[in-house]
Computed example of a mutant assay.
Amino acid sequence: MSAFDFMTRHRAEFDAIRHDLHAHPELGLEEHRTAGIVADKLTEWGIEVHRGIGRTGVVGVLRSGNGAGSIGLRADMDALPMQEDNTVSYRSTKPGLMHACGHDGHTTMLLAAARYLAETRSFDGTVNFIFQPGEEGVGGALAMLEDGLLERFPCDALFGMHNRPGLPVGQFAIRPGAAMAGGAFFDITIKGKGAHGARPEDSIDPVLVAGHLITALQTIVSRNLPHSDVAVLSITKMTGGDAYNIIPDTATLGGTVRCFDSAIMTRIRDLLERTATNIAEGFGARASLDFRLIFAPTVNDPVHTTAYADTAAELVGEANVDRHAEAVMGSEDFSFMLEKTPGAYILAGGGQGAAPHHPRYNFNDETTPYGAALYARLVERSLPRMAHD
C-alpha cells in the first residue's frame, strides 16, 4: 500500500485527531495537552518518545534497519490568541484562543506520517519526528535547540511544511535559497516632558516626536536600501497619554521589520536607532530602541530543496509542483533549525478559504493525506532500504 493510500484509508482517524486539537488550542510553550496527545499516539504506535524538550516539545525516534543516516521532520503545535469566528462542530472551546494558522493540521500530518512509517518500516536509518512548541513568535525553535535538540537527536537533514490557502489542494510550492523573510519586532520609547494641553510651550511633547518618527521611519527602506534588497518596515502600534488635556511624559511606537538577509536586518536596526535618536534629540527628547530578532530568514538548501520537490512530483505530478515559488514576507522560526542543519521547507496547497491569522481560518482536512504522504515518501527516498532487505 502506498503512503497516500494509507493516509486515505485512515483519513477519518486523522481528521478526528485534527478536530480534537482544533477544539482545544494552546498558546506557545503551554501546549501540555497537545504534547500529551502527540506523545501518547507515538507511544501507541511503538515509537520511542522524548518529552519536555524546549519545555513542551516532543521528539519521537523511529529506527529501522542498520543504516547510519538520519532525517528530521518538524511540525509546530501552538495556537494564537484570537477569537474564532467559525461555526464548525469542533470550533475552539477556549475563548480568545484558536488554531488560526493550521498548526493543528501540521501536527496531524506529521503524526499520520509517523504511524505509516512505524507500521511499514520501509526505510533504513533513523527518523526524528520533531513536534515543536511556540512557533508564533515566542521562541519555541530556539528553546528546543538550547535544550540540545540536534545534539540529542542528530539529523543529516531537516524538513518542514506549512499549509498555504489559495494554492489548490494537491499542489506544492518551494524555492531554493531564501524562501521566507526574517522578522524582528521593535519598540521605541520616547521620553519628553509632560505639561497641560493648554500650555504646550511648557512641554517636550513625545507624541509630536512620535508623529515625526512615523513619517521618517518609512524612509529607512525607500531611501537607504537598494531596490534589490527587499525589506518591509511597518509601524503597527502607538501609545501615549491617557487624558485629553495632558501632554504625557512618554510615548511609544512599535512595529516589525521583514527581510531576507541577516546583514540587511542589522543595517535596518542601526538606521532605526540612528533615526529615532536624532529626531528625538532635535525636539529635546530622548528615544531608546528595543529591537528583537524573532525569526531568522528561512533558507532552503538547494540539494534538499530538489529532493523535496522531486518527492512531491512523484506524489502529485511535476505539473503540480512549483519549484521556483515566490519568496514571501511571512516568517517561520523553523529558520533557526535550518541555520544549524541543512534542509528545506515546503508549502502544501490548502485550497480556498480564509488566510492564516484570520478568525475564520480553518485548516483544510483535504490537505492532510498529501502532506503526510509527502513526509513519508521523503523518508523512504532519503533513507532507502537495500534490495535484500
Results as ranks from 00 to 15, higher is better:
2 S>V: 00
4 F>W: 03
5 D>L: 11
7 M>E: 11
7 M>G: 07
7 M>D: 00
8 T>E: 15
9 R>T: 13
12 A>K: 05
13 E>L: 01
18 R>K: 07
29 L>Q: 14
35 A>Y: 01
41 K>A: 00
42 L>G: 09
48 E>Q: 13
52 G>Y: 02
55 R>T: 12
58 V>I: 15
75 A>P: 03
76 D>N: 07
81 P>D: 14
87 T>P: 00
88 V>C: 04
93 T>L: 12
97 L>F: 02
105 G>Q: 01
108 T>G: 03
110 L>G: 06
113 A>I: 14
114 A>V: 13
122 S>R: 13
123 F>H: 05
124 D>V: 10
132 Q>K: 05
133 P>N: 03
136 E>N: 12
139 G>Y: 04
144 M>N: 00
145 L>V: 09
146 E>D: 14
146 E>W: 05
157 A>C: 15
160 G>P: 09
164 R>T: 06
165 P>F: 02
170 G>Y: 10
170 G>L: 09
176 P>I: 02
180 M>C: 11
181 A>T: 14
182 G>K: 07
185 F>R: 14
188 I>E: 11
192 G>Q: 06
194 G>Y: 03
196 H>C: 04
197 G>V: 07
197 G>Q: 09
202 D>K: 04
203 S>W: 00
204 I>M: 01
207 V>S: 02
216 A>E: 01
216 A>K: 07
230 V>R: 15
244 Y>A: 12
245 N>L: 08
250 T>H: 05
250 T>S: 14
254 G>D: 14
255 G>D: 11
260 F>G: 04
266 T>E: 14
273 E>G: 12
274 R>A: 15
274 R>F: 01
276 A>N: 12
276 A>I: 12
279 I>Y: 09
287 A>Q: 02
287 A>R: 01
294 I>L: 14
302 P>Y: 10
306 T>A: 15
307 A>T: 13
319 A>W: 04
319 A>G: 10
321 V>R: 09
323 R>A: 11
330 G>R: 05
341 T>K: 14
344 A>P: 00
352 Q>R: 12
355 A>G: 02
357 H>V: 11
359 P>D: 09
362 N>F: 00
365 D>N: 05
375 Y>D: 07
